[in-house]
Design a protein around this nucleic acid. Structure first.
Lengths: 231, 231
DNA sequence: ACCTGAACACCGTTCAAGT
DNA sequence: ACCTGAACACCGTTCAAGT
């Protein structure tokens, strides 16, 4: 259904006659597969960002013709969907013991969620309008189960889940977007200085200069969980 | 600096000789301007979505050559940045009286923020990696001022602001993304039914079918504000 | 079942030039 | 100061065909 990241198997065919291969690509490629396509797409996205992913480049890197991709994949949108979900595979504690510390569990899960996406910043900018892949659904399921066990009533569960989801997605997108060059930072700073009479409060609390993103994420999540906690 | 939405002035030149105009576009266009470009871009985005905005189509609709746009605008990215900020102009209560109900004020501001973006769903998908335009900064400034007046200490202000921002942006992006056709909804539903043994909790609380987005937004925001309230 | 090249209908932007 | 057309180096995808 989606990239299971089974790793490209290295069962390479290896039948190269000495001269028929025109000294182009000595490495013989394993056969094309959905998994290889998605993994390579993620590499390309890591290296060149969202705009750097091109069906032609993807095919190039896979050593195939462009149109070969379309046998395994519907279209470029499909590649994006699969790449996003692939990055979100959850490798949490395999057998969660019935812990008493549900808050700690939730915080851990959501910090991992955010960290997984920030490792591949393009995933944040892919979030809008993308479908919920199986890995995302798994994470949502685990979150739901934990909250439910913690005593959140079914009637409140949806609000709790969406609130946490919203918070995490907003934080991740924002953080990924602000992970700019120092030049950009300096420019923003300069603009703010110049306009400090227009945005005095922002200027005073140095909103745009605070770079303790991780701390702010944890603290705000704490506040949200305070509000969500079953009474 | 950015689109002030001053409205296209209608000081149209009006010097059309009867035959030199080859019966193409009878309407004589007002001169090109940053404002007109941004306003027209927003129209195009409303009508055809993010992928529907093309420099060529934009120029067409403005009755100019493509390259004329580049005199007023750096590039396509620039157009996106300007369009996003243009949609976020805040027309709130002009002279806020020193209200006692800071919570009500914050809720109103953030609901308006979300509503403004949902009126133009493309704005949500434009959020990642976009710069903070003057209208966004104004909204952040107003939010900061209100929280500060409400008694949030400067030391906690950044966390409070970013938490609320994250929540609103996450909620807006999610909601805009889920505003799909009924077909998509039905498909998601079907997939979930089929996989209900894999995602039992999600299935049980009908997470993906609950469509009281506004209510969920308000409730979750309430929880977050509970946590953020100065003690 | 899987892969391919040619072709189509587009893109954003550079450049050298016009007024 | 403002606008332009031609040209460049790309795109994603259809199609008819190959093995």
């Amino acid at each position: 259904m989606t990239a299971k990241r089974s790793g490209a198997r290295s069962k390479r065919p290896q039948r190269i006659s000495q001269w028929s291969q025109p000294a182009q690509e000595p490495r013989s490629e394993p056969p094309l597969s959905r998994e290889r396509i998605v993994a390579t797409a993620a590499e390309l996205l890591d290296a060149h960002g969202v705009d750097g992913l091109t069906m032609r480049r993807l095919a190039d890197r896979l050593g195939s013709g462009v149109m070969s991709l379309y046998w395994h994949v519907d279209n470029k949108e499909d590649v994006f969907d699969l790449a996003l979900d692939a990055v979100l595979e959850y490798r949490g504690s395999p057998q969660t013991v019935q812990s008493q510390d549900w808050r700690g569990e939730v915080v851990h899960m959501l910090e991992d969620w955010r960290a997984s996406m920030l490792r591949h910043p393009w995933s944040a900018s892919l979030l809008p309008r993308r479908a919920l892949g199986p890995n995302i659904l798994s994470r949502l399921e685990l979150l739901s189960k934990t909250l439910s066990r913690a005593g959140v009533a079914d009637a409140d569960l949806n609000v709790a889940i969406w609130s946490l989801w919203n918070y995490v997605m907003g934080a991740t997108i924002t953080r990924a977007g602000f992970d700019l060059s120092d030049d950009d930072r300096a420019a923003a700073q300069k603009r703010l200085e110049h306009l400090s009479e227009r945005y005095p409060t922002i200027e005073r609390c140095r909103l745009l200069l605070d770079d303790d993103w991780d701390g702010a994420f944890r603290k705000g999540l704490g506040f949200l969980l305070d509000g969500l906690s079953p009474k």
